[in-house]
Structure formats: structure tokens, C-alpha cells
Nucleic acid binder design. Structure first.
Lengths: 168, 168
DNA sequence: AGCCTGCTTGACCGATCGGTATACAGTCAA
DNA sequence: TTGACTGTATACCGATCGGTCAAGCAGGCT
């Protein structure tokens, strides 16, 4: 999975999964777009489910690292909202990859645990930042709502507005 | 589409689409589960995209009618939150069908317009109830967030909490 | 009668699904 | 030099995808 070809597969799969959905994207298409054989894909990941899980896990890891980076510079709830807008590594124009994945994957899919862990991590971070579980819950709902809007709205306005509300 | 067989198709498709996702459910499976031939399905709806659109449209129509019914009895923002919990006609245990559909469908899918219209209708209703666009926006984000949580959480607690927050 | 509609059975289309198999070439370390 | 590792190409597996087609049968309409 750490071989060059494996990395290319994961990069390509990540783009395609996010852009078109997980079920709609086939392994053959991923392999072809990555310039790799299906054999190599299966040597690296073993199954589509494992590839999907790796996609979600890495997406969380990268986003989380970026969040911590930004929080170190300017700690505060607003930074969490901003990070959803500013992540340079991948587009968020279609909304939250984890919300989308939760819509597609059955609850027993190995990737579903990654989704739950990601959301709980974000909520936990808000709790850590505010020191108030109730307020964290409130901010989390606001954040989820704003991110959900991005899925059917073209503009990130909702996130800006949510951030403003979070300040109040 | 108003024939008995057509209705059975739409009923069955609605259950399957909501339970397993749109892309993951095939027309052959729908037809079989409805006790109907693929021919009949295509005579009634013409294409899978049209069937998906009909599914979303009817889901909106029914939910909307139910919401208006309940608002007539007890007008207020809290009723909108409750209606997400109480709709008897279909399960909401997996979260919002429209959020899920938005995750799966390409933006140019005919069903996508139904999604946008539904969400805008809900937001508009909140605006009508509050008479305050900013507060409506805030409540809508809270509602979307709470409903999104249902997709990866087993319990409807988030909706209860969101309703409590909406009162404050 | 005759015809139209609603629905059936069942076969068929090309394409794609996730996944496996065989065979071969290059690179690197022991 | 001999492997093990990483990768290629290609063909294959059974199943399913969305969609179409030919033929036939029931019941209600005029």
C-alpha cells in the first residue's frame, strides 16, 4: 500500500470516490485512471472495501493534521469552521466525504467505523476547545448542517454564516 | 404511473432506495421485489432516472403534506423538528433521504432539482414561521445538522437536542 | 364482435461489476 | 546467481448493470 503504484491507486480512487460516489466508481476505472493494472490494485489493497476504508482513513488523517496545524496557529472554534473551507489538499465543493460515504455504505462496512470515528473526533475537538459539552454539541450540529448544505448548494456561504453564528 | 403495478413499483423502489442507496439498487431487483416484470417497470417509468425522481418527488410530497397537517394543529418551529421524528409513512432511521440522494446523484440528474426544491421549501417554511430570514437560516442549519447525525448515529437524540436548542 | 390497456413470461443486448489467474519483465539484496 | 518484490499485460470468471423486444393473455371499452 506504500508502493508508488499503490499510492497512485489511492490518490486516483480518492478523487473518483469523492467526485462520483463510491458505488458508482468501479475498480477497473480506478486502475485505468491510475495507469495501473487491476492486479496491482488488488495486490495493494486486497478488496474494494479495503480501498474505500483506506480512502476514508487517509482523508480523515490529512484533514485532521491540517486542522491541528491551523489550531496551533490560531486556536478557537472559528478555525474549525474555516478549515472546512480552506483545506488545500482536496476539494470540498461537493460537501463532506464522510456524510456522503455514510449515505452509501452499509453500517457493517469496515469504512463506516472510520466515518463514525471522524465525526466523533470533530465533536470531541469542539468539546476540548469550548470546555462545554452542550455548546460543543450545538456547534457540531451547526457545522454538520452547514457542510450538508454544500452538497446541494454551489456556494460555501452556509459555512461562513454558520461561523458567524458560532461566534454569537 | 398510477396503475396498481406502477404503484407497487414505486413503493418497493422507495423502500429499497432509502435502505440501500440509489446506485446500489438495480431495476431488476426492484421489479422482482415488487412482483412485476422489468417491462412493466419501464412501461410505467421509462427509465431508472425517472423512477428515482418520482421516488424523491413523492417522498417530498408526502412529508410536506404531513408537515402542513401537523402545523395546522400546532404551529411553531418545534413542530418542524418533530415531524422529522414522527413521520409514520416511512422510516427516517438512516437519516435524510434527500441528503443521501444528493451524495449519490450527479448534479445534472433530474432528481437533483427535487432535492434542492425540498430543502428550499423547508427553509422557506422556517422563514414563514419565524418571520426572520436570519433566524430561519440558523434553524435550518441546526435541523440539517441534526438530521445528518442520524445517518451515522443510531438514536434520534440529536434531533431532540436540536429542538431544545431551537427553543432557546 | 373488436380493440385498447395492463400485465405477464422470458429471452436478449452490450457493458460493466468485483475478483482471480497465468505469464513475463525489471530491480534490488543476499 | 538466485530469489523475492513490484510491476506489467491480458484474459478470464459468474453475476449484474440499465434497457429493449416479441409474443401472449386477461379484462373493460365502444
Amino acid at each position: 500500500m506504500t508502493t508508488p503504484a499503490g499510492r497512485r491507486v489511492l490518490d486516483t480512487a480518492s478523487e473518483l470516490f469523492y467526485a462520483h460516489g463510491i458505488t458508482a466508481v468501479g475498480v477497473a476505472g480506478i486502475a485505468e485512471a491510475a495507469g495501473v493494472t487491476k492486479k496491482t490494485l488488488y495486490d495493494s489493497f486486497g478488496s474494494k472495501a479495503a480501498l474505500v476504508t483506506a480512502y476514508l482513513q487517509r482523508r480523515h488523517d490529512r484533514w485532521w493534521a491540517y486542522l491541528q496545524e491551523r489550531l496551533a496557529v490560531s486556536p478557537g472554534v472559528g478555525t474549525v469552521f474555516d478549515t472546512y473551507l480552506a483545506h488545500p489538499d482536496f476539494s470540498t465543493a461537493r460537501g463532506c466525504a464522510f456524510q456522503h460515504a455514510a449515505a452509501e455504505l452499509p453500517p457493517d462496512h469496515p469504512g463506516f467505523a472510520v466515518i463514525r470515528a471522524h465525526k466523533e473526533a470533530v465533536r470531541g475537538e469542539l468539546e476540548r476547545l469550548t470546555g462545554d459539552p452542550d455548546r460543543a454539541e450545538y456547534l457540531f450540529l451547526l457545522l454538520e448542517g452547514a457542510v450538508a448544505r454544500r452538497a446541494f448548494e454551489g456556494t460555501p456561504d452556509a459555512l461562513e454564516r454558520a461561523k458567524a453564528l458560532a461566534g454569537a
